[in-house]
């Protein structure tokens, strides 16, 4: 009984210590979330910003039927697949190469980490300046080697791929470092056994490295997938979803519904739906990681 009382006292003390943190978290995370869910059930616009008109799930239906939603969804799918796949290929190649390096490893790490440490807004501004069609250094350099000016952010196709490439520049290190950590943790012995068994470098990669890395690869892909779906900053700074709807990712589409369409109710409904999708992915990821343990 004494032990039980002791544990209870410990628990109460612990709660006391964490209370300020929990309160702050409640205020800045749970309250906006709850407010968004609540708002999504009302006809709340910036013209009439109040919760007077309860409309149930009407805003969800309205959001589903919104003009250009299919475009935004399709653009998002293209963006997520392109950036995550390319990041994976580059990241894995870099990780494989770095895994064999013994000298200057720290230097490579610092170079790799540099983009990750930068704020996405800074990254987007930087690239917007570099890629400016008239004043940017990129077109200047391209001009010197005889390539004509490219309208990186003005042409629909170029703009989409520019956004993808900037996202890759910013996030590929995340993939590389995660995969490198996985490679470094692989057991050495199966590789020696494979050498004795006569496996070539390619066979070793296919039959040993890939299967052993599967859990790490899955986690890296899912994490990047979740982040990529939520991409907002780059588009907001660089293209504002344009030209046309060429880079209109779902998060930017939601932002536009709220602050240009003025329909906060509908934007909230879409946010909640997006949250549920990301939540489902996260739960899947969590379960997968737990099944590995």
């Amino acid at each position: 009984m004494a032990a039980g009382a002791l544990a209870r006292r410990d628990q109460r003390f612990g709660l006391l210590l964490t209370a300020p943190g929990l309160a702050a978290l409640l205020l800045v995370v749970l309250f906006p979330l709850g407010f968004a869910v609540f708002t999504s059930l009302f006809d709340y616009t910036l013209v009439h910003p109040n919760h007077d008109t309860f409309v149930g799930f009407d805003k969800y239906v309205e959001a589903w039927n919104a003009d250009y939603l299919p475009d935004a969804l399709w653009t998002t799918v293209k963006f997520v697949v392109a950036s995550v796949v390319i990041e994976f290929v580059i990241g894995f190649s870099v990780a494989l190469a770095l895994n064999r390096v013994t000298r200057f490893k720290n230097v490579y790490y610092i170079i790799l980490l540099a983009p990750l440490l930068m704020n996405p807004v800074v990254v987007a501004q930087l690239w917007r300046m570099i890629l400016h069609s008239e004043l940017g250094i990129m077109n200047y350099v391209l001009g010197m080697i005889g390539i004509g000016k490219i309208n990186f952010l003005g042409d629909p196709v170029a703009a989409f791929w520019t956004v993808v490439l900037v996202d890759i520049w910013h996030q590929v290190s995340f993939m590389a470092i995660l995969l490198l950590a996985g490679l470094a943790a692989l057991p050495r012995e199966p590789y020696e056994a494979a050498r004795m068994d006569g496996a070539s470098a390619v066979q070793t990669f296919v039959h040993i490295t890939l299967p052993l890395m599967r859990p790490v690869i899955a986690v890296a892909l899912l994490l990047r997938l979740i982040f990529a779906i939520k991409t907002f900053d780059i588009v907001f700074i660089m293209t504002k979803g344009g030209p046309g709807t060429a880079t209109d990712l779902i998060s930017y589409f939601i932002y536009r519904s709220a602050f240009f369409g003025l329909d906060v109710g509908r934007a909230s409904a879409m946010s909640v739906a997006l949250l549920l999708i990301v939540l489902a992915l996260t739960i899947y990821l969590y379960r997968y990681m737990k099944s590995l343990a």
Partner: peptide
């Protein structure tokens, strides 16, 4: 070769 820690392919 038979290794000390067996070095079986875990997958």
């Amino acid at each position: 070769i038979v290794f000390q820690n067996y070095a079986l392919y875990p997958h």
